[in-house]
Each structure stands twice: as structure tokens, then as C-alpha cells.
Design a protein around this nucleic acid. Sequence first.
DNA 1: CAACCTGTTCGCCA
DNA 2: ATGGCGAACAGGTT
Length: 264
Amino acid sequence: MPELAEVDYYRKQWDAGLGSPVTHVHLNGEKRIFRGTDTEALAEALIARRLRGSESRGKQMLFCFSGHCWLGLHLGMTGKLSTGPADYIPAKHDHLVLFQRKRALIFNDMRQFGRVLFARTPEAPPWWRDLPPDAASPGFTRELMDRFLDRHRKLAIKPALLLQDGFPGVGNWMADEILWRAGIAPHRPCSTLGDAERQRLHKETRFVARQALAKIGPDFADPPRTWLFHQRWTRTGICPKHKTPLQRAAIGGRTTAWCPACQA
DNA sequence: CAACCTGTTCGCCA
DNA sequence: ATGGCGAACAGGTT
């Protein structure tokens, strides 16, 4: 489910626990979601630590605790964050629950395509520090985007938009929204995009990312009514501009919807 | 019962 | 070494 703006929405769900110490940690270290992470160190180190703050970058989240503890979360396809009462009883896919005196901070991910990372280091760990600037940030420049497209000449633009090294935070619905606004057909190889098209691609990537953060980020509201978003899942979906039926196909293995009239 | 799913990651091949 | 493709991951829903 979660792309850039939804990730930021979920991150803020744990704000309720800011400043409070962790009293108890619930997790099952056998689960795939913890692959590569020392869960015993995590569970032990977080006890009595206070949640100091959090950030999201693209689809990644970082939770900063006292004692130089850093918790990284990725929501995968089905992950969500929520809070519960102090006596909350963990449900089936609640892989990590941080209990505080007054509440529980819950990470649930049914399909476990997400991930939990942990580090106890003076500075933010490399897996956070080395992330490229996300699509909504000022660091996402035309030059950076061009360099990425030039590295993937043969790849269709739709699957290119889903690569998190180049378009951090963009997911399936955002990619379709961006291409629709930019007037670019999803199967076009990156190398075929001219200067004007690249300019539009860059502009609309930033627009969709920023608008999504502003409109969806605060309360998980739906995007504006005129967005392709509302049309792309329904069988009868139409182009918001032309009212013509949308085309749909799997491109790069992912369901893609586009308007044949305005995307060339 | 089959197909599908707002996301990565791996193995294989060019 | 790098890029591109398709399957795999786990567990739901339609």
C-alpha cells in the first residue's frame, strides 16, 4: 500500500509516543521481516530508551531513540504503523510492538515485504545516511534524474520510475499519475525521452510527490478528485481530461493505466 | 480455484 | 561490472 505520502502518514502515527521511554518490546525474531537484523540486540537496547523523533525519506522511515539507538522501518506492500492502549494484545501480523507506559507503538505487516533495521551508533547508520534525495526534496534535481535515465536507456519509463535509486518514494499509483500528467506513454524506453519530455517528467514527479505529501500525508485523505488515482483501479476508468477509457496492461510486471489520447 | 496485489530482491543472462 | 528481466517472497482478497 504505502508510497511516499502514505509512509509519512504512518510515520507520524508514532508521534504519540515522542518523549516516552520504552518499557517492553514484543517481537518474533524468526520472522522474515527481521532478516539480517540482530533482534536480541534491538529488544534489549530499546528498553528504557525515549523516542526522540522520526523522519521519512522516500519509502524509508527512521525512528531515533535516546542512547544512540536507530530503528529503521520499511512498510513493504502491506505494512502500517498504529498505536494501541498500554494493555494492547499483539495481533497476528504485529511483528514489532514497542510498549510505553501509556500506549503501544505497533508495526503490522501481513505480507512481510517490509523490513526492520536497527543500529546503535553515535551517528545515523549508513543504510539511512546513504539514501538518495527523495522525489519531494530539493535534492531531486533535473541533473540527478537525467543521469539516472541515461543509466537505464533500454528500460521502459514506467518500471524506471519504480526504481527507488532514481525516484525514491514513487510507487505504482504515483508513477502512473506522473506519466499521465507529463503526457508520456509508460512503455517508452528512457533513451527516447527528449529534453522537453524530461523537463515535464521532472516537474510532474516533484508536483505529484509534493501534492501527495500535502494532501495525503496529514490524514490519509484521498488525492484531489481530478487525479488519475481515482480512475486507475476501476474497470471503467476514464481519463479525467478526455473522458476516454483508460488503457491498461502489465508493464515491467506491474499493472499500469494510461490515457492513449494524452500520453504519447 | 485462479488471478491479482500502492514492493523489493535474487538469480540468470547479455 | 552493469543493466534488464522474471520469479520469488507471504498472505491476503476478489
